[in-house]
Amino acid sequence: MTSPGHAAAGLGAADLAAQAAALPVDGQWPLWEVFTQSEQGAPHEHAGSLHAVDEEQALQNARDVYARRGGVISLWVVPAAAITASSAGDSGPFFDPGAAKAYRHPQFYKAPRGVRVL
């Protein structure tokens, strides 16, 4: 648990007040995306999202909302604002492997006769 805030060195009361004022009073808590891992060695998969004010709360909420039925051994919570996504318009050129780049695939390469396992 983090330590309680006092007026921190370097930030005057006026700055803190301005920061507090910038937050909507009863506005949204920030959005977090939740990723869960179901077993050893499996990748973390997107499970959904939730609202929380900080990491500790996000982790606890994620556990209650997405992991209470078991089947989860690890959780990641990420502020939604921290995620950068490719855009829909990128889909063609951004992802298109191009038929001309077969050298990235194993079938491109012939194994010598008689070699069983490669």
Binding site: W29, H51, A52, Q60, N61, D64, R68
Partner: peptide, 11 residues
């Protein structure tokens, strides 16, 4: 006070 807390308290 918020949906996430309804779930937490129920747990």
């Amino acid at each position: 006070p918020i949906l996430e807390e309804d779930i937490a308290l129920a747990n």
